[in-house]
Amino acid sequence: MRLYLLALNPTDSVTEGFLPAAARLGLDVTVLTDQPEAHRRVAGSDIEVLECDVRDFRAVISRISTHHTPDAVFTNSDHLQTQAALAADYFGLPAKDWRTALRVKDKAQMRRHLAASGLDTVWSTELTAGQDPAGLTALDVPYPCVVKPREGVASEDVVLVDGPEELVLRCKEIQTRRPHVHLVIEEYLAGELYTLETLGDGHVRHVLSGFHTRLSAPPYFIEERLVYTPHHPEPVVEQVLAQLDALGVGFGVCHTEFVVHEGRARIIEVNYRAIGDQMDLLLTRLLDIPLFEHVLRTHLGQPLPADLGARADGAAVVDYPCAQSAGTLTAAPEAADLTVDGVELTYRPLREVGERHELYHTNRDYIGVLRAIGPDQETVERVAAEYLAAQRWEFTP
């Protein structure tokens, strides 16, 4: 059976998750990408990599049509869900509804759709590429508000603003750096930030678990730590699932971010793919299920079991040490796999010593990731904190 996997840059989710899972399922894999050399460097020799303008669904369909017959078309990229859905549908293969993929990727459209459903109304407006942000001062904007790219990821250019002058300034800053980006300005939703991880085949949907997210100090929204949450309160889960149902989300894997304030759950964004930044690798280990294989099976048209047999007794935390200034990384710990007091520690550097980076105020400021899994949350958090305190990262301006 032939799996076509659409990708932009290589990610841990693909190279360490989906490609090995495809091999275990006995699938022949063709990676379609606009960065073929990067994928050839990290993919196994048995993985076929072809160049393709994967952002254009027409190019994807043409490339597949002139190659092997497809049995599945899949992507874990935020940016390629609609293209993969359209291509799969063209070949009559199981897929996400392209309308849903587009609806949740476009944050303004998502807000409009949820408001029309009657489940949640968030004040928001759009600033199209090239539009003068000065016009925003004439609107009754609720402050504080959040500015973010309409189709953004990884907290890129997401910022909290407190008044009209700052709003105009921040929008102009983003437009200068990224003149083609469309922005969304929306009311700030108060509450603690959580995630809900789900997996469905269009008929059966499993709630896998979630995380409690700690963010950096305002005005930015960098995810610095995620604490594993096996079970959210049932009323909260019901609210989030109702909103996902309204959006049409139900096929494949989905990573949803939401806040809870006074018992009310409100969606921040829906990422119609597996949770990233190595969290999906952690989740597979915690749940003790072949998560990546299950995801691929849904795209092959195979139904999910009524019971995944997932564990719910683990404890875990993931920490992301972040750069605090621009400069060249001159000292940093190496990769490590340790067991301390029954806690499995996995540290992976995300920047190499000698690399120079600017300060982005996004997830691109991550310099490493520490995954810790253990028998109870108190021990896990203690061991993780002790490990991080013993490490040293140095930047030279």
Rank of each mutant, 00 (worst) to 15 (best):
R285M: 02
L338F: 09
E48H: 08
P219S: 09
A323T: 03
D56H: 03
A332L: 01
I174L: 01
P218C: 11
R382F: 14
G26Y: 10
P149C: 03
D28K: 12
A21S: 07
L359K: 09
R112K: 11
Y220V: 14
Q81R: 07
C145E: 05
H182M: 01
V204Y: 04
G248R: 01
V158D: 04
P94S: 09
R364C: 11
G263R: 06
H182D: 13
L114D: 06
H113V: 09
G374Q: 08
L304E: 01
E197N: 11
T30K: 03
W98Y: 15
F211G: 11
A115R: 08
V207G: 14
L208K: 04
L93N: 05
F251R: 02
D280S: 15
L136A: 08
C145L: 02
R273W: 13
L329C: 10
V204G: 05
T125M: 14
E192V: 07
P321N: 11
T330P: 04
L25C: 06
A84R: 01
H294M: 11
L114R: 02
D307S: 12
T75N: 10
T396I: 08
D71P: 00
V168A: 06
R40L: 10
Q81T: 05
D201E: 05
L139E: 12
V318E: 07
D46L: 05
A310N: 09
D337T: 13
C171V: 12
C254G: 12
F292N: 14
W393Y: 15
E394A: 15
